[in-house]
């Protein structure tokens, strides 16, 4: 149990640093910006209580907001992301499987499930984020292309890091 907390804490810190000091400066063609920090919320253990899940998402969002000077924007998107995560997991994962599958990582759940999971959650988060940031309908084609291309970039980075930390499953 302590090990799980330690791993998630380290993931929390390192993802914030990665996002704020490296990925914040990356933009492809003014369109595609990765927001990899949401991977922390994606990879929290299955058994996380809902209250803790929402609180951690809110905290993560508010910290990113503090660095991006956009109070509330990322927090709102992260809370939405947490809600979509709960819905997705309750639909796709059986409740009995929790003992031997503690975390929804790529090495535990398999490539196909993780890809769908990452894709749907990232799309939800980015759609909300970009539209809330711009908040006007007149630029909808531009916002949508930013949303799609950024989602592709983010999911790509997620899969990449998933394979990077791939651990063979013990049977």
């Amino acid at each position: 149990m302590n090990r799980v907390i330690l791993i998630n804490f380290l993931r929390f810190i390192s993802l914030i640093f990665l996002q704020v000091f490296l990925l914040k400066n990356i933009t492809l063609y003014n369109l595609s910006t990765p927001y990899l920090y949401i991977m922390f919320i994606l990879l929290l253990p299955f058994e996380t209580p809902n209250l803790l899940l929402f609180a951690l998402s809110f905290l993560m969002g508010i910290i990113i907001d503090a660095f991006y000077d956009t109070p509330g924007l990322h927090a709102a998107s992260c809370v939405l992301l947490a809600f979509v995560r709960i819905l997705f997991i309750s639909v796709t994962v059986q409740k009995d499987g929790f003992d031997n599958e503690p975390e929804p990582t790529l090495s535990v759940m398999g490539t196909r499930w993780f890809f769908t999971y990452a894709l749907i959650l990232t799309l939800a988060h980015h759609f909300f984020l970009f539209n809330l940031e711009v908040f006007r309908l007149s630029e909808i084609p531009f916002t949508l292309s930013r949303f799609v291309l950024s989602s592709i970039f983010t999911v790509f980075l997620m899969l990449l890091s998933g394979f990077l930390f791939y651990r063979k499953r013990k049977r």
């Binding site: 509330g72 809370v79 939405l80």
Partner: peptide
């Protein structure tokens, strides 16, 4: 349905922060 109610509470509080301080 605690997930839904928690979602509502947290979402509203973050949107309030967003609108108030932006």
């Amino acid at each position: 349905y605690n997930a839904f109610f928690l979602f509502i509470i947290f979402e509203i509080s973050s949107l309030v922060i967003y609108i108030k301080y932006n």
